[in-house]
Nucleic acid binder design. Structure first.
Lengths: 147, 147
DNA sequence: TCCGTGAGGTTGACTAGGAAACTACCATTT
DNA sequence: AAATGGTAGTTTCCTAGTCAACCTCACGGA
């Protein structure tokens, strides 16, 4: 009577378990470079596209404008980005130091991903990616994960 | 020279995007029941196994003991759990009200999972679960996802 | 027996983010 | 020109975690 099904029956549960493992490992890695995952996400977003506004980042990163504002403050303190323009309609860009750091962090991201998923065969890896792409498409997901 | 590969090339990125979507939707759902995801996770852990200690939950849920302590406080305030025993070596259990709430929340979890993954064919769904189980096994993942 | 060690729990300081109030500026309308 | 509305950013308050310092007690050894 009224058994509560095993939680692990949920695909979302499995997904979260794996996803958390990947993310937490990556979080520790980038922390070693003195940067949080959210900070990395912002740096990455600024890379290659100069003149990005905070509100662009709000859309891309799916965070509130309050959070973006503070995040930018932190990166500014660390000297990794520059803020130009005044109160309204400003624009953010990587500082030289920031631009330098991005490839290093990107390499970490590559390594982290490879380390986790190379246990899959090429075929399996492709299957997984296809399935995820399918879910992303049918649910219309767009916001980049930040946490 | 030194192109930064597209982030979306990372399987971990895709995984996180999908996982976040599932989790955020579920978070909103349970919030409608006046409970956070972490609270739900604790309730669920207490269900069916009486006499669980906080340190058990630390292990199961992968949170620090500080967090578990405060989480238990909140559930206590809401009247969903009971705390017995003294300062050291206490044990936590569901209150009647808490035991009543679990099936409702479990139903939400079922619905949420179903809603997200039924766009997959039976075969695809099985593939996905098999792949995730494989990753969980080879990486020895055990901590239940809470966020 | 009594002491010390260390595990179980709590607490306080700190961090990152969300929500909403607030500020500043621009454009449009009158 | 003045008022008004809307968009961009900031700030304040709140929540939920971590971390580390701290209490309390059980138990093992001298």
């Amino acid at each position: 009577m009224s058994d509560i099904p095993d939680l692990t029956a949920h695909t979302g549960y499995l997904l979260r378990m794996v996803s958390n493992a990947v993310s937490q490992k990556f979080a520790r890695d980038v922390e070693g470079e003195g940067v949080t995952v959210a900070e990395w996400a912002m740096l990455r977003s600024l890379y290659g596209s100069d003149a990005t506004t905070p509100s662009d980042l709000v859309r891309k990163m799916g965070m509130t404008k309050g959070a973006i504002s503070k995040l930018a403050d932190r990166l500014l303190d660390k000297g990794l980005i520059a803020r130009t323009g005044s109160n309204r309609g400003q624009s953010l860009s990587l500082s030289p130091a920031g631009a330098q750091r991005v490839p290093i962090l990107a390499a970490l991201a590559d390594q982290n991903d490879a380390a986790f998923f190379t246990v899959l065969s090429g075929e399996e890896h492709k299957q997984l990616r296809d399935l995820l792409h399918g879910l992303i498409k049918t649910h219309g997901l767009t916001t980049m994960p930040v946490d």
